[in-house]
Design a protein around this nucleic acid. Structure first.
Lengths: 210, 210
DNA sequence: ATCCACCTTCCGACCGTTCGGTAGACTATG
DNA sequence: CATAGTCTACCGAACGGTCGGAAGGTGGAT
């Protein structure tokens, strides 16, 4: 019997999910067949249905698990309302980008393939997605209200910044010469400057970063 | 015989291309069947093959026509090397975003669905895409070298800015309350500030804007 | 007579999904 | 200790349907 040890090999269900996330990112949800997936995992197509009720359910699980991982992370950061909003936003962006690079396949599925969910799964997905993006938009709005940013249209600004992060996910190819945390910091700096904070407030940022 | 008149109704080939671009953007290339397309156009599936040799050729044509429209536009702007690079980059971004909003379906296909081209079409596509993106990256690099920007990594900066534009294309939904040119200006301003130009140089920008 | 734009018909391949069945491991009962 | 029941994980085969695409015909305009 397996010892439930920490570095034990992952179960088949997890391997299916990981492989599916990778394939969905590379080939797209509609460009990946269940046969493709089964072959990549090393089992038969029909065996997939022992672990997941449908292709849709598989995608939904990938996306939901990504959200459940990343929403609490940002929510906690965004909720520290005693700190300056620019610092909280910066920290949230760093977390988001770091997690995006670390779990590239999963975050890419959330960002790019979520729109292919059928209507029964779409409701939950849209809700969580709105919830997550509102965390960022609310911070931007607060920053505008408090006069910390130059931009005026929070919807447009959120579109720009979240789009920037989406773009990274799509274009990023792992190379050894840059740490995820470095990239995340550069991106967050760029975003904050873009909002109109003339120079990134290092004190405020450091304060939030624990 | 048709007079080649300006407001004459478009030929079937064009209608197919326009409809396909819209469907490919909304449902994805692999999520759109030739039957879907034929129904939307109002002809039979087989009739499509009278105008296009294959589904791949159709997508390739959509993408190529987008590039042939937008590359000269930006190339001309980027080539005015007597003007400050920040102004040229700003102007190029405005053009890119404006065109993206005006030809949303086509630009979206270029940005999102190009990766589904088969290898025979991919070579040409990748070349043009690289060529286009290099226009922006070279300007960013030049700005860094001349000390106009704070950022240091041109590859990362290009990823951020082009990703921002991609994000707009994906997230933008037409609403009456903002003109494309307004949105484009806000985006270009945000991008330039993000690069570290402390305040957008209105003189330089106006100079380039004809 | 030719050609174009469109049609009907059809094809083999592949799609997501279901079903019936099997091998092995665990558990409870005697 | 044997045995019967149950569970998990997997498989081969097949389902109805749809896919991209080919072949060949029809009717109108030139």
């Amino acid at each position: 019997m397996s010892q439930e040890g920490y570095p034990s090999e992952p179960g088949t269900g997890e391997r299916i999910r990981d492989t599916a996330a990778a394939l969905f990112r590379q080939e797209g949800f509609n460009g990946t067949s269940m046969q493709d997936l089964a072959t990549a995992v090393g089992i038969t197509k029909s065996s997939l249905y022992h672990h997941y009720a449908s292709k849709q359910a598989l995608l939904a699980d990938i996306i939901a698990s990504t959200m459940n991982l990343v929403i609490p992370l940002v929510r906690e950061t965004a909720a520290a309302t005693d700190l300056p909003v620019s610092g909280r936003l910066h920290r949230s962006l760093v977390l988001h980008v770091e997690e995006s690079i670390l779990e590239l396949d999963y975050v890419a599925c959330f960002a790019e393939e979520g729109r292919f969910l059928s209507s029964d799964f779409m409701a939950t997905h849209q809700e969580k997605k709105d919830q997550y993006e509102r965390l960022f938009r609310d911070m931007i709005e607060e920053g505008i209200d408090k006069g910390e940013f130059l931009v005026q249209d929070s919807a447009l600004a959120a579109m720009a910044i979240l789009g920037m992060c989406d773009g990274l996910i799509r274009r990023y190819r792992p190379t050894g010469d840059r740490l995820p945390s470095e990239i995340a910091t550069v991106f967050a700096d760029t975003a904050l400057r873009g909002l109109g904070q003339p120079e990134v407030d290092r004190v405020a940022v450091a304060e939030v970063a624990r």
